[in-house]
Design a protein around this nucleic acid. Sequence first.
DNA 1: ACCTCCTGGTGACGCTCATCACACCCAGCC
DNA 2: GGCTGGGTGTGATGAGCGTCACCAGGAGGT
Lengths: 237, 237
Amino acid sequence: MGSPYGFELVENCVICKLRSDSFFCSLPKAALEAFDRIKYSAAYPAGAVLFVEGQSPRGIYMLCKGRVKMSTTSAEGKTLILKIAQPGEVLGMHATVSGTPYEITAETGQPCQLNFVKRDDFLKFLQQHGDACLKAAQHLSKDCQSAYQQIRSLGLSHSAPERLARLLLEWTASTHDQAEPKVKLALTHEEIAQIIGTSRETVTRVLADFRKRQVAVLKGSTLTIRNKSVLEKLVGA
Amino acid sequence: MGSPYGFELVENCVICKLRSDSFFCSLPKAALEAFDRIKYSAAYPAGAVLFVEGQSPRGIYMLCKGRVKMSTTSAEGKTLILKIAQPGEVLGMHATVSGTPYEITAETGQPCQLNFVKRDDFLKFLQQHGDACLKAAQHLSKDCQSAYQQIRSLGLSHSAPERLARLLLEWTASTHDQAEPKVKLALTHEEIAQIIGTSRETVTRVLADFRKRQVAVLKGSTLTIRNKSVLEKLVGA
DNA sequence: ACCTCCTGGTGACGCTCATCACACCCAGCC
DNA sequence: GGCTGGGTGTGATGAGCGTCACCAGGAGGT
């Protein structure tokens, strides 16, 4: 057996160890077995495009392992990153459930394992398994919430430093009260700019300013928060 | 029987005539009867606040009649309007389904009829009625989509005229190809500004410019599009 | 070794728009 | 009549940041 992307492909959902409680596929046994029967497992290299905005929905991708960049692009080619999907999320569920075209482009940021489920199979699955359907609704709710979060960030903040500060705090939110929280993230300035809706140069400048003022340092792919309170003051909280 | 807000309160969902296909409550008979048993009907005056962001979710409000303004406010008091909910929509579903606090404030913009359902009742209802649960998922999907729409508008457009043009086109999207589409809307410049994330003065100026160039005229609460193609060129489509 | 591509860093310029300030109009109300 | 108060129209000003332009460093390929 080869492992082309540096990890073994888990073929059987029922015995899968990647799953945790927050995963969509954290389901009762019956539903999980049903899900296992309709899904197609596959591994993808970094940079693979799962679907493109405007395509009509083929189905959902359950993300088991890896990160996926969800983005949208304007007519002029400007790109906005909506979020970086984490393991446990279901990609393309809005479009699949509502039957409208994918409104987002999904692209793997690193080697990933994904389970694909065809649209018809997925809808039937939801209809037959109430608990899975409720779970789906919960995941959609979370998506909405993160979308509203981003709307707040884009619409209510006046300055780029403020938005960047908010993003840094968001990234370090899970590191509970360490003195100097560190986070690993493999994003270029360009990509950060696309998340907070500003230009690459501005991100570089603001980060340089943060570094100079000993607020936060981004070195390589490691982000270190030196002075959280300054960031919190910037976001006005 | 009084009709305090200018219309009769429909008490029985099963025989309700307000409903159309796109309504959440467009459900099979069994589910509809179950819904009817757990809901509380009520009429609200204009300006009533249904829930405020940060509150823990009491339940959902099914909007039967009227418009409701969904908004969020920053720490500095700046307000952003996320959308104007139309009849048929369910308000507060994200929070109710996921159990997290309402992330939005809902305020009636005119006299409304609403059906309230307590959280526990609603969740049980979704569990027992697969078709209703699927419908709920579809409505959540639509919410997500409109949220992503707004993110695009805020994040990908460089200028206020562009965002306003996009909004006007959105409003007139349903009027199919009339020569000079007209829409009724009761929004102040201030509120329009809060939708597209700009200042009131800018809205006034851009509208004045549109009027001068014979592109669109907002007189009283009637919006008339004089030259759709100019607007379309502005949004870059 | 070289070249090339991508990322990061920095200066200069100028447009957009937020902000402040005020003036006008039309309500409703005392 | 003369208030007040909310919505609208308009000018002046200046900060913020997008854009262009260019350079430096590093990775990877040949």
